[in-house]
Amino acid sequence: MSMQGQVQGQGSASQWQSGSPRPMQLRVRHTTGFTYAEGAEASYNEARMTPLTTSDQVVLRSRVEVSPTAWSQEYRDYWGTVVTAFEVHEPHDALTVVATSTVESTPHAVDVAPVGWADLAAVSDEWCEFLVLDSWVRPHDDLGAQLDTLRASSDTPGEYAVGAFGLVHDHLRYLPGVTQVSTTAAEAWEAGAGVCQDVAHATLGALRRAGIPARYVSGYLHPSTEPVVGETVEGESHAWVEYWDGDWRGFDPTNAVVPGDRHVLVARGRGYGDCPPLRGIYSTPGASELFVSVEVTRLR
């Protein structure tokens, strides 16, 4: 994910609002799966690759195709994510899942007033799951110390959030390959680099540490700031956060922007573990390799 822009000083998060006036339509084609060196006998999986219709986006079309042909069922999980569960019972050398969706973005600004520190207590039970500081998100001690200073100087949760975004964004360089799926926020902090998942986890930890409910969002992002209509470009799965400040507000800490019409939301949860695009088990005597590719096309 390329980075653009710098986080600037203080202020409300909404100043990064980058919405464009006319609705953009994006087509995302997400291909992923496994190849098996010695073939697989059977496989049971769940794909979380279908975008959600929210107040900020409308899903016009979506389909998930699996090869070899599999029996599948669709359901909504605890977090509201659309899940495609499927199983393959015949021997196969590769498992491929292709999720294609067309999404129209209808971003809108949050028009609820930000809250004060004292107001957070009223929602701490309702959003208790998004306040848990587990090992995935717990801030590194260095970050923790900086956050304590920030907390002392922030008059409102909103002010603290902006400061926290800056701390995380400035420290964590976007650099693929340094971290893995299982890397924790503190480990990424130690490395000083990571991918969007690590940046999101670190940001969640920073927010939750101050008692601000914060949740993980997975989805896609069109990589170009000015997407060209009709041009298909290589994209990636992306992750950002939502935090509660009177209402849920989004922020993409990797790119230091408020998610806009180039962001496509697929799943929300406490962390990456609640929204993996493809998760499952397979039976193979040999090694397996994962492949992923995302193509994004602006249609309108």
């Binding site: 695009p277 493809l278 998760r279 499952g280 088990i281 397979y282 039976s283 992923v292």
Partner: peptide, 13 residues
């Protein structure tokens, strides 16, 4: 005897 699969877990990003 087709049973007794040994399962491996996989996750994708």
């Amino acid at each position: 005897h087709s049973d007794t699969h040994a399962w491996t877990g996989g996750v994708s990003l």
